[in-house]
Amino acid sequence: MSVTVRAYEHGAGTALIRDALKPLSRGAHASAYVAVGDVIDTDDSDVFLKGHGTQVIGDRLVATQCGAVTRTDKLISVRPPRERYVARAGDVVVGRIVEIAGKRWKVDLQSQQQGSLLLSAVHLPGGVQRRRNAEDELAMRSVFREGDLVSAEVQQVYHDGGVHLHTRSLKFGKLEQGQLVVVHPGLVKRQRSHFISFEPLGVDAILGLNGLIWVGPHLPRGEDGAPAAAGGGGGAAAAAPEREVRERAVRVAAAVRALAALHLQVFPSSITEAYQLSLEKGVAIKDVPQPAFLKLLAEHEAARRHNVMAAEAGGF
């Protein structure tokens, strides 16, 4: 039961990763960064497409956000390090129910507007999609209530910014047996699947593109994606996971926090590497997001990138 008192360092995580990566910065990937109000180089071309984070003033392209300039053909955009999540159709997200209004649930996605989950977009008990009736509406709270966390897919984004979600596939729905880790949305990139199973560990994770990440012990699922234990409302009946499994799940969550503290991207292999490294170095779970391990993780990442760059160079 030791107690630690130490000096606070602002931006310690950023400093650690920056120092670790400094030797690598002379690579070909050095990006052009701009601050708000900077004029962006358009290569003396009159023809360019103004992308995200830019505005046209007179005949110049000016940044409206700080970030990295990206050029695709004639489209010039600025990609900022941080931004509230912007939904796109097909995104897998994790959100919290904040309100039940009429025939819909309002979901906080930590985005510009709350998402709407219509009663008609939810998979209800009974298996087959059936017409929603009055009973369903009153019983909405028994399906999802205020405060519940759910996983869902973005069905559509309307031109006024309204976001409609659905949980029609059985793999979506109320989240149970786990914990939430919140990271910046920019750290979660689109990938093939956002439902991750760390098989040998018996730990599952859902990587929401809005930066909300759910980590918990593995829940067996049927072929249709539904949780095999109980449909829809495990609740108090769900058996508590064994201590070993819980420790592994909590360590995975801690690994995610460590990656986020260093502004590293969160995806299955980076989580696994951080997890393995913490075990290798004999770090207690509670010490994983702390400066001592963060330093090791930053150095590990620098070494990994160095190897990747060397391999690429060797390929020529």
Binding site: M1, G178, A254, K286
Partner: peptide, 26 residues
């Protein structure tokens, strides 16, 4: 803001001496 499911997970963890951030009870 926290769901009943999250609270249950935390309570079961505490009973096992494993908190969500990996700390022990003390």
């Amino acid at each position: 803001d926290i769901s009943d499911a999250e609270k249950l997970y935390i309570a079961q963890g505490v009973a096992q001496g494993v908190r969500n951030d990996g700390r022990g009870c003390h």
